[in-house]
Structure formats: C-alpha cells, structure tokens
Write a protein that binds this DNA or RNA. Structure first.
Length: 218
DNA sequence: CACCAGGCAAGTA
DNA sequence: TACTTGCATGGT
C-alpha cells in the first residue's frame, strides 16, 4: 500500500512518464477562472465549446461578462451543462470580485491566500475545489487542488476510504508531504488529471498500464 | 439503453 | 450530522 511519504516519489514518476504539463488550459487568468466554474462535474471538451462561444462573441473579459444578462450568458455556455446554474455562479463570482477587489484580477491575485480563499468560498456556487483551482491556476497561490481524480488515486491506493473522504484531509496529505510551492502543486495536480484521464477512470481502469501500478501491492 | 464527466447547495430526518 | 436530490449537455 501507498504511504503518505511516498507522495513525492509518485510525483517524480508521473512527471517522468507524462512530462511537464505547464497547466491550466487557458490563456488568461480570467479564462482560467471561468473554466474552473464551467468544468464542475463536466468534461473539459464540453467546457471548451462553452469557452469558444464566449471567445467568439468577445465576451471573455471581466467587464463585458459582468454586465451580461443572465439569459444571454446561460445560452452561450449551454454546451457545458448546468448552464442556468453556472451562469448564476459566474455572476456571483464576478460580483464578489467587483465588490471586494474593484473588478481587478491583478489586485485579486495580490491578496493573501487565506482571506482570498475565504472570499471565494463565500460565493454561492464556489466550493473548495473550484476555489483552490482559481487560487492555484489563476492567482498562483500555493494550495493543493483535490478533485475526483485525486480522490480516486488516493482511494485506489488505500490512503483514504472510497467514500466519505474529507476534502481538507486529502489536501493535508499532499500539503504536509510536499514543499510549499505553487509551481509544484500546479504541476502535480495537472499530472494527476493526466493519470485520471488515461488510466484511472471510474468504470474502465487500466491499472496494469499505469506508471503507479506496481505500488498497488507493494 | 445506462453510465460517466476536473461540484455544489439545498432539503430532509 | 448524514443521506438524498436537482442541476444538463455530450460522449462511450
């Protein structure tokens, strides 16, 4: 079984296997932030369609999107699913940044991590994963993102239960075992997603071919 | 056809 | 606190 202190070795293996990912898929902090909301429980290919709609309409900018009617925004992001819900969530998020950070993402990114995380979590529709994704990938803050792939990796290797694992508990596993580096957390989470997409799927796992397969019965 | 995908919040007991 | 349900499109 996997041990807590092996998390650094796992990183080395994934990096050697997949190579550096230089994530997140998005050209600007604003695009990354929007993508973080749109990808909630949704495939990235569907998110791309929604992002492309926004891009082609020239709406992928803070001031423009912030003044868009809900129905217009919802229609554009329809392909990524939950479109009414996500339109509201985006608007809630933009309103918070408008109020607390003058609608300025650079100012937003200059804030300290703990209050910034708190501000994000107070937005209706922003939970721990979305908050941490925005903090890490749009604001370069050193926090570890826990998603379905990460949970699956940990549970398949016996580090946490398959059901009922706590987000903060899983986050602490990584953050207590690793140096506090946003560059490292960024790359590590990206590599976990690579593993998840290629080997660690829910119903069709390919554990035999996974670069970590020999750790399963060590 | 059933199941899955880089969640989250609200309702119920 | 511990379940359960709604939200929705698109791919396998």
């Amino acid at each position: 079984m996997l041990k807590n202190h092996d998390l650094l070795e796992i990183y080395d293996r994934l990096l050697a296997y997949f190579g550096p990912q230089h994530w997140w898929p998005g050209e600007t902090p604003f695009e990354i932030m929007v993508g973080a909301v749109l990808t909630q429980n949704t495939t990235w290919t569907n998110v791309e369609k929604a992002i492309n709609n926004l891009k082609e309409s020239g709406l992928l900018r803070f001031e423009v999107m912030a003044s868009l009617p809900h129905a217009t925004l919802a229609e554009l992001i329809r392909p990524c699913g939950y479109f009414n819900l996500k339109a509201s969530r985006l608007q809630n998020l933009l309103a918070m940044i408008q109020t607390r950070y003058e609608g300025d993402l650079e100012l937003f990114a200059q804030a300290e991590l703990p209050p910034l995380r708190q501000a994000l979590l107070e937005v209706k529709g922003i939970g721990p994963e979305t908050a941490d994704s925005i903090l890490l990938y749009a604001a370069n803050k050193p926090t570890f993102v826990i998603d379905a792939y990460t949970h699956r990796l940990l549970s398949r290797h016996g580090l946490v239960p398959e059901e009922g694992a706590d987000y903060h508990e899983m986050q602490e596993l990584f953050m207590s075992a690793l140096p506090n580096s946003s560059a490292l957390f960024n790359e590590y989470h990206a590599l976990i997603v690579c593993t998840g997409k290629e080997f660690c799927k829910k119903s069709t796992p390919k554990c035999q071919d996974c670069p970590l397969s020999d750790l399963l019965n060590a």
